[in-house]
């Protein structure tokens, strides 16, 4: 990859940006007022992000404490809004509609089910994608010939819009479709409870594994050949070389890839929404949190806002756990990659 040529220049850039104060004086004309210029230059981005992300988030939180207009389920009176306290949140978390439990079949009764579905999809897809992606990356790293072909084919699933991917797999998994023909089965892929979940997992694995493989490959290519040579001389067999050399060295890149992938999987929407019409099986076998939010929007903004805030908090919590306890050092790894080591 063209990045290798950047190693030397990347290092100099690093020395320059992190140079101690006296050294920095050498390029004084360029570095004078650097702090203020930096702020000015990032300002448009920060302002735009504040407008398109910051404002909606704050607004969603404010909305989530407002009552939705409608019949108050407790009193039977019509309310046009007002302060709701935490009732929108307790509605979802405790699955309570008014004073009673939400009846089965209503959106209110689906919160924990969709949390479970979302995490099930996340766990299944990430585990399969990382293992398969690891294997792909190792194969690609070892390939002499056909690197161009490999890279080209790996980019194809990534480039196809997820919505189109969902339609494509909808066709493949049709009752008379190629999947049932090839497997000689008669599975209702988009209708059965677990079949529809598997269909989504398979489609997601196809779409995302090649991308994971690319990220892992970038990590693999940094490992110097001498390291393997030394391990081989010391008598390590191929499995030992993989577990004792490759895995520890590729770990930082791998952890970041997994973190991004997990956060991406937690917000999964396109595939279940299109491939199984948001339901699948009994009607909510593939309802993820994102789908639940979209379903709720027309049934009350403020309640939907509470749900989307909960979704956001959940994803934030997962990211926090990853960075705090599992050592996914996003910024550092990002920086290291940007300095041209990858």
């Amino acid at each position: 990859m063209s990045v290798t040529s950047g190693v030397s220049t990347g290092d100099t850039a690093e020395q320059q940006t992190q140079a101690s104060a006296p050294e920095r004086k050498r390029g004084a004309s360029l570095h004078r007022g650097e702090g203020r210029r930096g702020i000015y230059l990032v300002a448009p981005t920060i302002i735009l992000l504040a407008a398109v992300i910051g404002y909606p988030v704050v607004k969603a939180i404010v909305m989530s404490f407002q009552k939705d207009p409608g019949l108050d389920k407790a009193t039977g009176m019509f309310v046009s809004g007002g302060n709701a306290g935490f009732s929108n949140y307790t509605h979802w978390i405790l699955q309570r509609c008014g004073t009673a439990s939400c009846p089965p079949g209503t959106l209110g009764a689906e919160f924990w089910d969709s949390v479970g579905t979302t995490f099930m999809f996340t766990l299944a897809t990430v585990v399969i994608e990382v293992l398969l992606g690891m294997w792909m990356a190792v194969v690609m790293n070892r390939a002499f010939r056909g690197r161009g072909l490999l890279r080209a084919s790996v980019l194809v699933p990534w480039a196809i819009p997820t919505a189109i991917t969902a339609k494509l797999w909808y066709f493949i998994f049709a009752y008379d479709g190629i999947a049932n023909r090839v497997l000689h089965t008669h599975i209702l892929w988009t209708g059965g409870e677990w079949a529809s979940r598997f269909a989504i997992i398979i489609a997601d694995v196809w779409k995302t594994t090649p991308f994971i493989a690319l990220l892992i490959l970038a990590g693999l290519q940094v490992i110097p050949a001498e390291t393997y040579e030394a391990a081989r001389v010391d008598g390590a067999n191929s499995w030992q070389r993989f577990t004792k050399v490759t895995l520890p060295l590729v770990r930082p890149a791998l952890m970041v890839a997994i973190l991004f992938r997990v956060l991406d999987a937690l917000r999964i929407y396109d595939l279940p929404a299109i491939l199984t019409g948001g339901g699948g099986g009994t009607g909510h076998a593939t309802t993820t949190l994102s789908i639940l939010v979209v379903d709720q929007i027309r049934g009350g903004f403020n309640s939907a806002a509470a749900l989307s805030t909960l979704t956001f908090l959940l994803i934030f919590l997962v990211a926090f756990i990853f960075v705090k306890f599992l050592g996914a050092h996003v910024v550092q790894t990002q920086q290291r990659q940007q300095k041209g080591t990858i």
Partner: peptide
Amino acid sequence: MFPGVALLTPLFQ
């Protein structure tokens, strides 16, 4: 990494 769905409700309104 921000979930798009968290923007949806306030923006839709």
